[in-house]
Design a binder for these strands. Structure first.
Lengths: 348, 348
DNA sequence: CTGAAAGCGCTTACAG
DNA sequence: CTGAAAGCGCTTACAG
């Protein structure tokens, strides 16, 4: 790498003190004559000087680094989240350290501590598994370390800045929509019971039924694990247990799934039986993935607004870092339904 | 954050010098009695001390940070690449700074300089647009800064460690496979002409035809832009211009696309016309995305091995950082064809 | 408008 | 086995 050019070299080269060079570099106004300024910039150019972020960080106790922790880069919600955070944070000069936990609590804890203790100015964490231990997060927050949670639940987090998604309302609204479209019996394929958002979505589904005066039939509610195969498997069981009439049409007219992947699994099972989508069964997923738009027949889905959530998370975090706004930080993002043209309308 | 606990506090608390504490922290053996050691660890525990990575970095001139620059987190190849890099690098104590360039050369240059000059120990960059300026990369490499390129071309990069994919061979092998399956007329939807890998893939297609004694018919080769819609559009034109016989079956039996997204677009256009896949037309994409496995009818695809490429990139980079192996670093990854059961076999 | 000096929190020869 | 001291490359009161 050759010999490293330091601020001292620039000072010497342009005949001023390192103080002056530093001020110029940091755009501290009114401390420098135009003349000196020219000389310094020229020296910087000539020696191809680049200030050391590390040295600066040691003094200022700021690294301009933000840690982003989530389970899985393959999941489109987290891709959206990352892009949102990046868009907002990079404008303000922050760079992002990305960590995948793979749903592993130990990894998560290690990353949290490693990033928090001495490297990043703050952390955005989004890992929605119920088994996650919130203790580390709460401890960091209490110590005054800037941290923002996204889609993470637990009342011990109530003082931690957080971004949430209206999971219940989302599924409730889908039921409303289906009801208005004439559907009266709706099946549900839930995500795994250890995932908080899966439970909330299922609750929303149940509330939606009750609210519209429909019976909650537990034989129409099965539980998968968010993977495609489980959606397919659950759908097969639903069709086996609820088939009737010609072409084994089921006694329900729509199926909702806790995420898009399971919904696509359901699509497979439905097509296997020679049934039509949405004519025989309307299918609705959740997450608003590209898949839901791409596959044919197309399925209904719910967009979470990951990009907007990411931007908001970054906004909250940077505000915490700069200690600008000490008020409560909490926002619940509302669902965007993508159902038009993807749902069968049933005439009475 | 309260008062920061430093190495000096630990030294005072346990009655030794900071030198001794530092040695213990860094596991420098043979400089400490068991007895002292106990006292120091106890003090570290008691005061909840965490060494400052920043301060250490300033002395050692290593940050244990690796920069990863690529166009787009939404692209599955780069997701694989990232996971590969992460898997290898995190084991060795490195953390990753991720930057998306969106194919913007200015962003790319800014990220390169910003990461290189004073923050990361090395950079892995994968942005395959031909318009990219390789100058910055070559300059950094010449200055001795560790850098590894992935799927990036240009003979000025010949001394830079690099990971490549056998784009030509991939398409050539697909043609071989199709030929063996009885196909004699094959259409091609190419990626944009400013993308180096698109051109190489098309070259491979052409070579494959010639090698198997087939005519290269330029009216069967169209150019898209790697997006789904362009694949659909190109396919419509192919069907318009080459339709014949019953149900407007075309005079070719297979279509290859420069990536999976365009292949899926082609699928749409084919189904629009009421044609069957693969019975009327076999469709083959490239990239091995999840989409290619998920959609029905399923399409053939080529896996690039992004995870393995990422691991290798990390291995090269860390070897450069540690100046361990100064030999030439270059590897070309071979394609993995996923065609079985996705291609029509044509009996003679 | 400008600078000397202290200090951020570590590591590492060097000396014992 | 242990420590005093210099130094990594900056910023920032403080003094002029």
């Amino acid at each position: 790498m050759g010999k490293k050019v330091t601020i001292r070299d620039i000072a010497k080269e342009s005949g001023v003190s390192t103080t002056t060079v530093s001020r110029l570099l940091n755009h501290v106004e009114g401390y420098c004559s135009k003349d000196t300024e020219q000389r310094v910039w020229a020296a910087i150019e000539r020696l191809n000087y680049h200030p050391s972020k590390i040295a600066r960080s040691l003094v200022t106790q700021k690294t301009n680094l933000i840690g982003v922790i989530f389970p899985d880069i393959y999941n489109s919600f987290f891709q959206d989240l990352f892009r949102g955070v990046e868009e907002y944070a990079s404008r303000l000069g922050y760079q992002l350290i990305l960590c995948n936990t793979d749903g592993n609590s130990k990894k998560e804890r290690d990353y949290l501590l490693s990033l928090a203790e001495n490297l990043t100015d703050g952390i955005i964490i989004s890992t929605s598994n119920a088994k996650d231990d919130n203790t580390t997060i709460v401890d960091l927050h209490k110590k005054g370390f800037p941290i923002v949670t996204v889609e993470r639940y637990g009342k011990e987090l109530k003082d931690v800045p957080r971004i949430l998604f209206a999971n219940r309302e989302a599924e409730e609204q889908v039921v409303d929509y289906l009801y208005r479209s004439g559907h009266r019996r709706i099946a549900y394929i839930s995500g795994p019971s250890n995932a908080v958002n899966a439970n909330r979505r299922q609750e929303g589904f149940r509330n939606g039924l009750s609210k519209n005066g429909l019976l909650v039939d537990d034989s129409l509610i099965l539980t998968g694990d968010y993977k495609l195969e489980s959606g397919q498997e659950c759908m097969r069981r639903l069709l086996d247990e609820h088939g009737c009439g010609d072409r084994k049409k089921p006694d329900f007219t729509a199926v909702m799934a806790g995420n898009d992947l399971m919904a696509i699994g359901a699509v497979r099972a439905i097509l296997e039986r020679g049934l039509q989508i949405p004519d025989d069964i309307s299918v609705i997923g959740c997450d608003g993935t590209m898949l839901a738009d791409l596959i044919r027949p197309q399925i209904g889905t719910i967009r979470l607004g990951g990009i907007e959530m990411g931007k908001k998370a970054a906004e909250y975090l940077i505000s915490e870092i700069k200690s600008e706004d000490t008020g409560e930080k909490k926002v619940i993002f509302q669902p965007q339904l993508h159902l038009d043209g993807r749902i069968k309308t049933i005439e009475e």
